[in-house]
Computed example of a mutant assay.
Amino acid sequence: MTTPRLPQRRRLLAAGAALCLAATVPTGALADTPAFPSKPITLILPFPAGGPTDAQMRALAIAAGKELGQSVVVMNQPGAGGTLGPATMSRTAAPDGHTIAIAANTLYRLPLLQKVNYDPLKDFTYIINLTGYTMGIAVRADAPWKTLDDLIKDARSRPGQISYGSTGVGSSGHIAMERLARATGTSFNYIPYKGGAEEAAALLGGHIDFISNAGWGAQVDAGKERLLAVYSDKRLKRRPDVPTLKELGHDLVITSPIGVVGPANMPPAVVARLHDALRKAMQDPTYQRLVEQWDQEHQYMSSEQYRGYAAEQMPKEKAFLDQLGLKLQ
């Protein structure tokens, strides 16, 4: 019998070593590294179509799809103050990155107000924070109140008779107005809605007197609504004539970040891939134009920063709710 030539023997030995190494690696480790994404990604938007977030996220989805090599499909799933969509995702979607959702501050405020079927810190993977809603108090252009002080004085004279809308119980706009009402000794009649488009229709139709929320930009630009004040720390670049609540003597600054979350236990490599694609998509001119059109600011947070923000925010929200006397129902 002839002996294999040396190069051939080396090739055989190398192949045998590779087979031995493969036998020692758990099969799950090899299976855990599939190509991502392998199919279109669903981005759940927990607000109705037609609002400011809808337009922004559709622009972002198109840009992110180009980065990922797969389409990103926006699916509207409103309800429960913007928590129904991400909560449902956390229970039903595989943690493979192909189903993700937009999250707002209500996601970790609502569990402090009522029983929910999710844990904001255990049931989600925090991927990236994108921007933040700019909250404000807006009335119809023909409303009798020219300033916030006019509105508050009127509310004091007939408590509970002036109505306002915001996106769901426990939303940032709701809590902000309740804090303002408590601080000024007034009370208002709160009516929750599913999203900004519904609130605008209700306000312009005369069903409510004002809104405490974001999403008033287009109506203010069109001269249909008047912005009395904003909850931001500084006056807005596009609206330098509108005062902040802080300027008006109310120590109240409200921010409401908007980010992207996925189900718990997503692979770190998938999280990083989504984060990087969305981070690049944030530079898309159409997306940036829509963010600025609605008077929002870019509020980027990395995955780690975003999760840290959520953890820190829960005790802060609890303190605000305790001040208002709002307890778990």
Rank of each mutant, 00 (worst) to 15 (best):
S302K: 08
P4D: 11
L151N: 08
Q283D: 15
P257Y: 01
R182A: 15
V116D: 06
T92P: 03
G160Q: 11
N76Y: 10
V25H: 01
A94C: 01
Q329A: 11
N265W: 00
I211L: 04
Q288V: 08
L148N: 05
V260F: 02
T83Q: 01
T186R: 09
S302H: 05
A23M: 14
V271F: 00
L228D: 07
E67D: 09
A176D: 10
L278N: 04
V169R: 05
G81F: 01
E198Y: 08
G262Y: 00
P268A: 08
L228H: 04
A103S: 08
T134V: 00
I211P: 01
L21P: 07
T255F: 06
I41R: 05
A201W: 14
G217N: 12
R289Q: 15
R226N: 09
T286P: 02
L326I: 13
A94L: 12
Q161I: 11
P192C: 01
A218V: 15
K39I: 08
V253L: 02
I162Q: 09
Y309D: 06
D233K: 10
W145Y: 13
G206V: 11
S187F: 02
L245Y: 10
K66H: 14
L321W: 07
P240L: 06
G82Q: 00
K66S: 14
Q288G: 07
K194R: 12
E304F: 01
L112V: 05
